[in-house]
């Protein structure tokens, strides 16, 4: 029940933050798409633990990310976009976690599995948001190729880590 409630709260925050961001700039077309994304999230909430709920929340996350990206192009409020991003990611994770546990009973000594997950998720999202905001206010001027190089290094580092894990 807790997971369902948290998922609902997170999804609602994400949609509300995005709606507010688009509403402030009076971009009603974008707002209506956000409402559509919200409806997909609501569908995922109502059909929680069913086969297609997984797809609904995946679609919800993709929709949120797309609208945030458009919002970034339209110079919408960064704090609101960040809140939407963190909440959307949180909602998606809670849904995935719930789906994963669906068929399983918790063993006696693992009753805090859920609590631990919530704390870790909260910490990660908060840490990510804080880090992002710190980065947003530290302005460094770099050229395209430097940025591209940094991006490639980042992607290579990530894929290298994954290969390391696979071994």
């Amino acid at each position: 029940m807790d997971r369902k409630l948290f998922f609902g709260v997170c999804a609602a925050i994400a949609v509300a933050a995005l709606l507010l961001a688009y509403g402030i700039e009076q971009i009603w077309f974008g707002g209506s798409i956000v409402i559509g994304v919200g409806l997909v999230g609501a569908f995922g909430w109502f059909t929680m633990r069913r086969e297609y709920s997984d797809w609904a929340t995946g679609l919800f996350l993709v929709g949120i990310v797309l609208m945030i990206t458009f919002g970034a192009f339209l110079d919408l409020n960064l704090f609101l976009l960040m809140a939407a991003m963190v909440s959307g990611l949180g909602a998606w994770d809670l849904m995935r976690f719930d789906k994963g546990l669906e068929r399983y009973a918790l063993s006696e000594n693992s009753l805090d599995l859920e609590r631990r997950h919530l704390f870790l998720l909260g910490g990660t999202l908060l840490g990510g948001a804080v880090l992002a905001l710190v980065v947003a206010f530290v302005q460094i001027q770099i050229g395209f190729f430097t940025a591209l190089g940094l991006g490639i290094i980042l992607i290579l580092a990530l894929s290298g880590t994954i290969r390391l894990i696979q071994k």
């Binding site: 990310v65 960040m82 991003m85 963190v86 990510g128 880090l131 992002a132 591209l148 980042l154």
Partner: peptide, 30 residues
């Protein structure tokens, strides 16, 4: 999603998108 955001951010030289991708990155790194 992360790769798409980073790519779009880099191609469009839009720093905000890269900033917004950071929570994703932290999540994956954890």
């Amino acid at each position: 999603l992360l790769a798409a955001m980073v790519s779009v951010g880099l191609l469009a030289l839009e720093g905000t998108i890269l900033v917004l991708a950071i929570p994703f990155l932290v999540y994956v790194l954890v």
